[in-house]
């Protein structure tokens, strides 16, 4: 879409764009190209000579057990978060859509976790499940289940998944509720007159009409689990125990800043960029046109 009426001025548009473009060049394009460049180089152990090695760093990266583990952990983590956050939000949204009075009150009571920072969400759940003073850990012990996420990898993963899901439910709930309220009442009434019960109405009418919203949210949730959960991992498990929650974004940070492995971190950055670009393309190609609010 283009404007018919435009202004003419030889310099003004460039001036207006200058701040945005300058920041993009300095803080986005330049660092990204640096990462790309470094990912193709290799330094000798003394840092004296760098040689151009093409894809060697990538082959190297994908043959490290550490990195493959991190890939697997990230996959398990993001799929669990997406599935849990989507299904529980959808379930709550269906309930909220069903009540005539108070749907908006429930919305208010359910949306605020969106405003809680991931790191804070991590701290909240960490405190509940702290092996020595957490109340939830205490209850589990009373039930005969020994909880210690600092030693048990599975428990650590469960904890970060729960914290990440808790924060994301509100976002999904909001979009599901909006999607459901946009479905014409007449459709549902017609089905009810034909004798379809609430469960049948949901699966044959509401859910199919919500698929675009669901698909859009699925992409958003996976992107969230991939990139926005750094704070949760950092505050709850620091990637541990023994790499059980070492998601890709955390590994990039750890290898670059704590282990000072510059080349490895750059190569990982490039892989991550590729993943983001893939997600963005999916989002624009398949989601953009199909989502209705």
């Amino acid at each position: 879409m283009e404007k018919r009426v435009v202004f003419r001025n030889p310099v003004l548009p460039y001036l207006l764009l200058a701040p945005q473009i300058a920041i993009t060049l300095i803080f986005f394009i330049w660092p990204a190209s640096q990462a790309l460049y470094q990912s193709l180089l290799q330094q000798d152990p003394f840092g004296l000579r760098t040689t151009f090695v093409w894809a060697d760093n990538f082959i190297d990266l994908f043959s490290q057990a550490d990195y493959l583990n991190s890939l697997q952990v990230t996959t398990v983590f993001s799929i669990s978060v997406a599935v849990l956050a989507l299904s529980s939000a959808l379930y709550l949204a269906v309930q909220a859509d069903r009540v005539l009075k108070g749907a908006m009150a429930y919305r208010t009571l359910l949306i605020w976790p969106y405003a809680v920072a991931p790191v804070v969400a991590g701290v909240l759940w960490l405190f509940l499940f702290n092996p020595t003073l957490g109340i939830a850990a205490y209850w589990l012990r009373e039930l005969g289940y020994d909880w210690n996420h600092t030693l048990n990898g599975g428990q650590a993963m469960t904890l970060v998944v729960v914290a990440a899901t808790w924060k994301q439910i509100s976002y999904n709930f909001l979009f599901f509720l909006a999607g459901m309220q946009a479905i014409p009442r007449s459709l549902i009434e017609a089905a009810a007159i034909d004798g379809a019960g609430p469960v049948r109405r949901f699966w044959t009418i509401v859910f199919p009409l919500l698929t675009p919203t669901t698909f859009f949210l699925l992409v958003i949730n996976i992107v969230y689990a991939f990139f926005d959960t750094f704070g949760i991992i950092h505050s709850v498990t620091e990637g541990g125990p023994a790499g059980a929650t070492n998601i890709l974004v955390y590994k990039v940070f750890r290898d670059g800043f704590l282990n000072l492995d510059l080349g490895g971190s750059a190569t990982q950055s490039v892989v991550l960029m590729t993943i983001v670009i893939a997600f963005t393309v999916i989002q624009f190609r398949y989601v953009e046109r199909k989502v209705h609010y």
Binding site: F227, F230, V252, F257, S265, S269, M273, V276
Partner: peptide, 10 residues
């Protein structure tokens, strides 16, 4: 496409 998380070090 380039959140801070993916280009930390540079």
């Amino acid at each position: 496409m380039l959140p801070v998380e993916v280009r930390i070090l540079p």
